[in-house]
Design a protein around this nucleic acid. Structure first.
Lengths: 142, 142
DNA sequence: CTTGAACCTCTAGCAACTAGAACATTTAGA
DNA sequence: TCTAAATGTTCTAGTTGCTAGAGGTTCAAG
């Protein structure tokens, strides 16, 4: 039986995060000691690892909820899990494209900066002038 | 003199967002009509464009605050603006690296999925098994 | 003068945690 | 067995960068 702290260490998860997952129903309510402390078994280690790994792959918690659901019902079609993963791949590729464009523009603007004072700073100039900009995405924040 | 709505249209910013920027002190408090409605001039268009463009390049609002500050003081060294931009470039490159690893793993897991039911779904299997994982970044969510 | 679009403030919500206060329990050593 | 430190508990509020809604006011056109 693991304490919440050792579960956290085993899975690379902060204690607060585990409690948060419990609160939103991603993790089950675990057993407690007499004194009221949480105690976990192997099933919880597995489940939390699954969640963390999925998070590292960028899946949003709602997608993970679905995936866990699928995982709990071994007779359902694999199709759904596959399509969730494909959706996620698309997101990742979209973000990569956007980041590529950003990198290009950032590099250009840094490259052209030659020091001096801000009056003729290329960085600021580029930011001021939107016209040469390659990126006209509506979405923001990579 | 522009209303908040037309300023928004000109700069591709939602009205709520403009008011939010004002609230956190990124945009100045504008003049008002007798009836209390905001009215903007050219300076505000420029400032908001600067902000939006910077946001599109992924700069966090705090960095933009610094950049605006530099921009307001033309005699200060360009060095600071440059280093903010470089910091941002580093962030972007870091994110790209991470996304590349994620894409690889997602592709692998989708590729290996052959249909059937979830009992032997590769997607779920990969998520369950952390051992083959390429990504062991602490940070999450690309 | 009326109508309807656009404005106003204020509050709450989103994702996915993170941090802190104030207190309780557990565990290992003396 | 006692005690002190480490770890646990709940609860609330903060983070970032907005977005949405309620409920009311102002503006400009016809």
């Amino acid at each position: 039986m693991l304490t919440i702290g050792s579960l956290g260490k085993k899975t690379g998860t902060k204690v607060q995060t585990i409690r948060y997952y419990e609160q939103i129903g991603l993790m089950p309510e675990p057993g407690r000691t007499e004194g009221g402390q949480r105690r976990y078994g192997d099933a919880e280690v597995d489940r939390l690892s699954f969640i963390r790994h999925s998070r590292q792959l960028g899946f949003p918690l709602e997608a993970i909820r679905e995936l866990l659901d699928l995982s709990d019902n071994p007779d359902r079609s694999c199709h759904e899990a596959d399509s969730i993963a494909r959706r996620q791949l698309k997101q990742v590729e979209l973000r990569m494209d956007r980041l590529k464009a950003l990198r290009t523009e950032l590099k250009r603007m840094i490259h052209e900066c030659s020091g001096g004072n801000t009056a003729d700073c290329k960085v600021l100039e580029v930011l001021r002038d939107h016209s040469e900009c390659l990126t006209d995405h509506d979405e923001i924040g990579a």
